[in-house]
Nucleic acid binder design. Structure first.
Lengths: 214, 214
DNA sequence: TCGATGTCTAATGTCGACATTCGACAGATG
DNA sequence: CATCTGTCGAATGTCGACATTAGACATCGA
């Protein structure tokens, strides 16, 4: 039973994700309901439904009576978004750091090594995937539904809108070093340090991307 | 020029706010589009638009193909929501605490005194309003748009969904003491302390409400 | 008896058409 | 020349009707 029925709305959302990830949509572009509806052979109703979801996840800017636009971020706003992710993830990791098993810590260390290795080989896709796995595991012990909701949304937003820059982000030593610092702080169960290094990780990531984008 | 034209959608949103604040809607209730449309004399389209906005702000739970419901929170979820607010506000205040003028610090202290005074008189409405002003001023120096967006949304959600409990929350000494601690930490420019006391304030608030509700 | 299956209903999902509004541009006005 | 105003087009906002589906209930069979 692999067939998952999707509503038109969901298909539209996926469609826009693809358009963003393949750079067919750029910051400032307007998503015209009529046009999208024509292109997908459906009516405007599900397009509008999809827009609301995209807006909710921060992937689309809405201007009443005018339309929906791919957001344009200033360098500072990029930094702000990553900073916010860091604040949320920092707390998530810190608040549940006692719950990691030794196997999971090992896993985190292995992922770090893999990431470095992929970075050396310039296999950016795998760097990103491994990084995703790392951060997912890192926050997996947190059970604050509200906080995770925001973390996930922000994660999706940053992933989709800035995916194109991630390849240029790190040298292999930087990416390894940063993640190693996080693992070390968790191993040490140093609450203050955990929040500090996680935040730092995201602020630096955001700054780098803001630099590239600006 | 005080007349602000509102779209039907906005009127629906306001209508639901009112229903929630006046306890005409309770956790678990379904918001049926057809019924709301009839009651307001409009079609389902703007009702659906309004639902999306309410969902985005966390005031309504959406179940695909089933409907929209007033959320039911477990005590733990209530605590989680307040905790998250504390994490966000704690960072907001901490990151911009150097920007407060002495006049603004004075204002914060005055608001604390007023709050205490209203609490003594059991004037709950004014306690809440003054408290709102206090926290608004507290985060006003933060310019992280992304973080403030989440803070505001969460604020609205907690305000509207748990408004009914706020009256029972504090004794006058508690409410004064808690807010005084925050002001003191800001005056001292003690970054770690600021985050700690702000978080503590919200965790305790959330716990109290969870206790009442549970 | 109890679980699987069929049917029904009330709610959401989608449609195409019409109403309304924002923003651009041309022309009037000082 | 700058600014104000009116018109116009293209986009969103709203409508009423129809399509589809989740969940409740009745039915059937081991």
């Amino acid at each position: 039973m692999a067939i998952i029925k999707k509503t038109y709305k969901d298909q539209v959302v996926d469609h826009v994700y693809q358009l963003l990830l393949t750079n067919e949509l750029n910051p400032g572009d307007q998503l015209k309901e009529t046009l999208l509806a024509e292109q997908m052979g459906i009516s405007r109703a599900p397009i509008r439904e999809a827009m609301k979801e995209l807006i909710m996840n921060g992937l689309v800017d809405y201007r009443p009576q005018v339309g929906n636009f791919i957001p344009v971020f200033s360098p500072q706003q990029i930094i702000d978004s990553y900073t916010t992710r860091g604040v949320l993830e920092g707390y998530a990791v810190m608040s549940a750091c006692a719950l990691f098993s030794t196997e999971e810590i090992d896993k985190l260390e292995n992922l770090t090594v893999q990431m470095e290795s992929y970075a050396v080989k310039k296999n950016h896709k795998m760097v990103i995937d491994t990084g995703g796995e790392f951060h997912d595991l890192l926050i997996s012990k947190c059970d604050n539904v509200q906080l995770l909701e925001y973390t996930d949304r922000l994660s999706l937003k940053l992933h989709i809108l800035f995916f194109k820059y991630w390849g240029k982000l790190y040298s292999s030593t930087e990416i390894g070093g940063r993640h190693r610092k996080i693992v070390e702080s968790v191993k040490a169960q140093d609450l203050n340090l955990i929040e500090k290094v996680v935040r730092q990780h995201y602020v630096e990531t955001g700054s780098k991307i803001a630099e590239i984008e600006g």
